[in-house]
């Protein structure tokens, strides 16, 4: 019974959603609307679950004094700090905690934005170093990849406005729209077929790992 009821619920939900997609009329569309509302509510609660899971993991790290437990301490302290600031801001600004002028907005503006931008900016340095080390014309495949990369990189950034860079730009557009897109489309179709097969397996109760 412990397994049968979740399997039955999954089957009924899956079938209801499929039917409502093909017959978007009463009562099927109402069922779908209700399920979508539930989904939105559950998405909100999933955030709470994520927070619980993250904090629990790092509290255990601190208790056991695992390697790098100091980072866990910083994470948890900042979580508590930002949470308190958020609550104070929400009270001050009647629920609109991220209003410019609030303490939470200050944290966002002076901590979240610069830290996120810094983390992302570091990628440029790693990519430059990795490109220098990895792009070696060792074999035919690697050479083709190297040529394509160099041409697309140059085509995207015309240093001078002349016929050569115009040609590179057009070639770059063609490369992105034809060979690149063909490969991406193949990958997307593969993912779609895989998702379809997995969904069917879940609806029919063949795939049960999510119950564990």
């Amino acid at each position: 019974m412990k397994r049968q009821i979740p399997l039955l619920l999954t089957f009924l939900t899956g079938v209801a959603i499929i039917i409502s997609f093909f017959i978007p009329h009463k009562p099927f569309n109402q069922v779908q609307d209700t399920l979508l509302d539930w989904f939105i509510i559950i998405s909100g609660f999933a955030l709470l679950l994520g927070i619980y899971s993250l904090l629990r993991k790092h509290i255990i790290h601190i208790q056991k004094k695992d390697a790098g437990w100091g980072y866990s301490l910083i994470l948890n302290s900042f979580f508590v700090g930002v949470f308190i600031v958020g609550i104070i801001s929400a009270v001050q600004f009647k629920g609109m905690s991220l209003t410019p002028g609030s303490s939470l907005y200050y944290v966002y503006d002076y901590m979240v934005i610069p830290l996120s931008a810094t983390m992302f900016s570091l990628l440029a340095f790693f990519i430059a170093s990795a490109a220098y080390r990895a792009f070696r014309a060792r074999k035919l495949n690697a050479t083709l990849l190297l040529i394509a990369a160099v041409v697309v990189m140059l085509g995207r950034v015309p240093i001078v406005d002349n016929a050569f860079f115009k040609f590179l730009g057009q070639f770059s557009d063609w490369f992105m729209l034809i060979p690149q897109m063909a490969a991406k489309r193949g990958i997307l179709i593969g993912i779609a077929l895989g998702s379809f097969a997995m969904s069917l397996r879940i609806i029919l109760g063949i795939e049960r790992t999510y119950l564990q």
Binding site: R133, L146, L154
Partner: peptide, 13 residues
């Protein structure tokens, strides 16, 4: 930056 990376790729090769 792109030009610099390309120069480094050429030097590396």
């Amino acid at each position: 930056a792109h030009i610099l990376i390309i120069v480094f790729i050429i030097i590396g090769n």
